[in-house]
Design a protein around this nucleic acid. Structure first.
Lengths: 147, 147
DNA sequence: CCTTGACTTAGAGTTAACTCTAAGTGATAC
DNA sequence: GTATCACTTAGAGTTAACTCTAAGTCAAGG
């Protein structure tokens, strides 16, 4: 199946302008052309799916290009590409862990504002209640301002 | 306990230059001064901990300032602040879910490169093996290039 | 044949979040 | 008393990742 740039954009959820930018940056090698116009195949959309994964998990475009360059070398670059994927996989696991930590901070704030809204004021909230009610340590001390 | 900007920087893991930038942007209201020099208290460090949480979970500095401005209004802004925290909490949960999805894509790639390295080539890998071995659908079709 | 609409380019402009520069102040060490 | 050192400021510069602009090409419809 073949697609124009706007069809491809629709499919992968990236604006056509951004796809052109990625192409210019060397992230989409060997895109076919007909009369100068890009023709995208399913294989290209799959690669763009991987690029989206790498980009959205925080890999800079420069590094994604390195990865794409390596794929062009074929089997000779398997080890190097594996290292990149392995590092990114670890990076994503670390990010999830970090976000779960931050989520606990926000869980506390959520609890805090619920209490405060019920009481009509933030001035009566006790740090210890959170631990008593949830079994978790409050990441912040609600006795003070800046809640 | 009181701290200089570089001590505070050390404590919260943000460079002094960036703390000054946040101050200039209105993220740190009411920091005390002695002879023109900022004096940080524990309460300030706790607020900076929350700012780090909001910033690292993707809230723009502009929006963080809005939140900080609201805290200065006291109990009158509890509901508004709660809405911000609730939205950010949901946003973090969505991010975690998204990252877990991407992690599966990278898990597949990890499996793929392990197979390829064992075989010495990527050309023999079967899409179906991944489903057979892991019970999961391969997010990409390894029969093609750009692996 | 001419208009329309989607495509093309090079290159300039934008935005967020820093990061640096230059010039200066004030407390402490020698 | 002067050198040093951490602090201060306004404002300029940087970086990444787009995003827009202007000028142009090409195929299809009326």
């Amino acid at each position: 199946m073949s697609y124009t740039i706007s069809e491809a954009a629709e499919k992968v959820g990236i604006p056509p302008t951004t796809i052109r930018y990625y192409d210019k940056e060397g992230l989409l090698p060997d895109i076919k052309r007909r009369n100068g116009i890009r023709v995208f195949e399913d294989i290209d959309l799959r690669l763009m799916g991987l690029l989206t994964c790498l980009k959205d998990t925080g890999m800079p475009i420069k590094r994604i290009r390195e990865y794409v360059e390596l794929t062009k070398k074929g089997d000779a670059s398997l080890q190097e590409r594996y290292e990149i994927i392995k590092a990114q996989r670890q990076f994503v696991m670390d990010q999830i862990e970090q976000l779960q930590f931050y989520l606990e901070e926000l869980d506390f704030k959520d609890w805090y504002y619920n209490k405060a809204l019920a009481a009509g004021t933030a001035s009566v909230i006790s740090f210890d209640d959170y631990e008593r009610e949830t079994g978790k340590k409050a990441p912040d001390d609600p006795k003070n301002r800046n809640g």
